[in-house]
Design a protein around this nucleic acid. Structure first.
Lengths: 131, 131
DNA sequence: CAGGATCCTTTACGATACTG
DNA sequence: CAGTATCGTAAAGGATCCTG
């Protein structure tokens, strides 16, 4: 509960490697990039909306990742004064600059899958998206 | 030692989320993106060259990550019939298509650091690259 | 030189139950 | 609804030593 308050930046090494480290420290992991990508597409979303969209994520992890993204100034968290309290998450202007990165990640993922499928061995069985 | 032989692809979900998963499953982690970025810039490299460039990586992790990248057809591994055996690693044509992704990751990392530095709290101390 | 074997720590992630 | 608490597993990563 100490470093959690701090922005993450990498230490010394050449400029490009360091830039890769800086970015990947924020995007690495199973869910962070998906969260940002989802918020980029859908705009403001509530906790449960995110949980539903990112199907499979547990509330604990979603909560933790959202906090980290907020600390790193990529998203905002806003409590609404509603009956049962609701919270809205949205991309910041800074977070929005990840659009190009996410876009390339999506594009590459699509062509990569096209290349691999029809190739040979694949670890997961289903190839059809659900929505 | 079973799934190691298989290419990684994600299961069902919407197309863009799945694309993000596919890409990030290959790039997530502390070293993979750095390895690819390094090989993209420097061309063919030996094991020790990589280890020196990616300073801080242990031989075990480097070896493991290189194997995974090779399995996923992003790099090639070539043994040279030299006195003490040497091995050369290089990007494949498919791996080279990650150029745009890595490029965006580097660009974003650079501007992100510019934005954050001069801002407020930073976790690491040194801000100067070594080379 | 390349990289496997071993041991160990830490982090990530997951399931479930519970609270204001 | 939006999380936190608790518990548990698995993966990631690191240190070091060893070998063909």
């Amino acid at each position: 509960m100490k470093k959690k308050e701090e922005v993450i930046l990498s230490q010394q090494c050449n400029l490009q490697i360091r830039a890769i480290k800086d970015t990947m420290e924020l995007l690495s992991g199973k869910w962070k990039t998906q969260i940002i990508g989802t918020l980029l597409r859908n705009g403001t979303m509530q906790f449960m909306e995110l949980k539903r969209t990112l199907h499979g994520i547990s509330p604990k992890i979603l909560s933790k990742d959202l906090q980290e993204l907020e600390i790193n100034q990529l998203i905002t968290r806003t409590e609404k004064h509603t009956k049962p309290i609701t919270v809205e998450y949205a991309i910041t202007d800074h977070g929005r600059t990840l659009d190009n990165v996410i876009g390339e990640i999506i594009d590459w993922g699509l062509t990569h899958r096209n290349k691999i499928v029809g190739g040979s061995k694949i670890s997961e069985d289903s190839n059809k998206p659900t929505d």
